[in-house]
Computed example of a mutant assay.
Amino acid sequence: MGTDAKDDLHEYLRAARQALLWKLDGLSDYDVRRPLTATGTNLLGLLKHVASVGVEYFGTVLGRPFPEPMPWIQNGGEANEDMHASAEESREQIIAFWHRAWAHADATIEALPLDAPGRVPWWPPERAEITMHRLLVHVLEEVARHAGHADIVRELVDGAAGRREGSSNLPEHDQAWWTDYHDRLEEIARASR
């Protein structure tokens, strides 16, 4: 029995979104906001960014605008304003925005066929015309990429890793094994100098 391509893509998109959201569970407000890379990557910012991406691609591009303003995009905000929560934005506000943004995107995905046309105004003109199918693939790749970023950031915060609660997707070993493994890799890296 075959499966529907749109349903498959949508299922994987939902799984990637859930993985990213799960990375905030159990962390303090400080830990979800703290920048852990030189470019400021942080968990709450990844969530805000990915929700914004969903709104733009499954809203603006397909002629189904999101019904609320996103000042960090519409007001020509500072560079990377969508990659962090401002001091005025609470964790709860960002998570609520996440749910509203993805409900809007899901409604669009469910309402339109894979060949539904769209236009990406911020892409070069020769690539700006697009279909729902291409959008689903593009956004799935974007969300999965950022879920991977979130996995690494979360591991830097408290050592937690994996795709979802109860399924780390890593070999089952105790902390001593992982410490030894890390040390062996460091030894190999040093020997390669």
Score class of each variant (00 low, 15 high):
residue 176 A to E: 14
residue 173 H to I: 06
residue 33 R to D: 10
residue 131 T to W: 09
residue 50 V to N: 08
residue 26 G to E: 06
residue 50 V to E: 05
residue 47 L to Y: 00
residue 143 V to I: 10
residue 151 D to V: 04
residue 179 T to Q: 12
residue 142 E to W: 06
residue 121 P to C: 05
residue 118 G to M: 08
residue 41 T to A: 14
residue 125 P to I: 05
residue 113 P to T: 13
residue 75 N to Q: 15
residue 42 N to P: 08
residue 64 R to E: 01
residue 83 M to W: 14
residue 153 V to R: 02
residue 139 V to A: 05
residue 91 R to Q: 07
residue 78 E to N: 02
residue 5 A to D: 07
residue 120 V to Y: 12
residue 153 V to W: 00
residue 71 P to L: 00
residue 69 P to S: 12
residue 22 W to L: 02
residue 53 V to H: 09
residue 26 G to S: 07
residue 38 A to P: 10
residue 121 P to S: 10
residue 46 L to M: 11
residue 93 Q to E: 13
residue 128 A to R: 11
residue 160 A to I: 08
residue 85 A to G: 09
residue 7 D to H: 05
residue 146 H to G: 13
residue 7 D to M: 03
residue 151 D to Y: 02
residue 78 E to V: 06
residue 168 S to D: 00
residue 11 E to R: 12
residue 84 H to T: 08
residue 180 D to C: 10
residue 44 L to M: 06
residue 120 V to Q: 11
residue 178 W to I: 06
residue 3 T to Y: 11
residue 115 D to Y: 03
residue 80 N to C: 10
residue 103 A to C: 03
residue 30 Y to I: 11
residue 141 E to W: 10
residue 163 R to C: 01
residue 135 L to W: 10
residue 60 T to V: 02
residue 179 T to P: 04
residue 148 G to L: 09
residue 115 D to N: 15
residue 96 A to E: 14
residue 180 D to Y: 09
residue 187 E to A: 15
residue 155 E to C: 08
residue 188 I to T: 07
residue 62 L to I: 05
residue 128 A to H: 12
residue 77 G to T: 09
residue 35 P to T: 08
residue 9 L to D: 01
residue 63 G to A: 03
residue 136 L to P: 10
residue 102 W to V: 03
residue 121 P to N: 09
residue 161 A to I: 13
residue 98 W to F: 14
residue 89 E to L: 12
residue 114 L to S: 06
residue 127 R to S: 14
residue 157 V to C: 09
residue 67 P to Q: 04
residue 50 V to Q: 12
residue 170 L to I: 07
residue 51 A to I: 03
residue 35 P to N: 08
residue 49 H to A: 00
residue 117 P to I: 01
residue 29 D to I: 07
residue 64 R to W: 00
residue 65 P to D: 04
residue 95 I to Q: 14
residue 137 V to C: 13
residue 35 P to Y: 05
residue 185 L to F: 14
residue 170 L to Y: 15
residue 158 D to V: 01
residue 111 A to C: 13
residue 41 T to K: 10
residue 149 H to Q: 15
residue 47 L to R: 04
residue 117 P to T: 03
residue 34 R to L: 13
residue 131 T to S: 15
residue 46 L to G: 10
residue 77 G to Y: 02
residue 104 H to V: 03
residue 191 A to Y: 00
residue 109 I to L: 06
residue 193 R to E: 08
residue 14 R to M: 04
residue 30 Y to K: 13
residue 173 H to N: 08
residue 186 E to S: 13
residue 163 R to G: 05
residue 138 H to P: 10
residue 118 G to D: 04
residue 45 G to M: 04
residue 165 E to D: 09
residue 70 M to F: 07
residue 109 I to Y: 05
residue 101 A to H: 01
residue 105 A to M: 02
residue 23 K to W: 05
residue 79 A to G: 08
residue 145 R to L: 09
residue 37 T to R: 07
residue 39 T to Q: 15
residue 42 N to K: 04
residue 77 G to P: 03
residue 191 A to M: 01
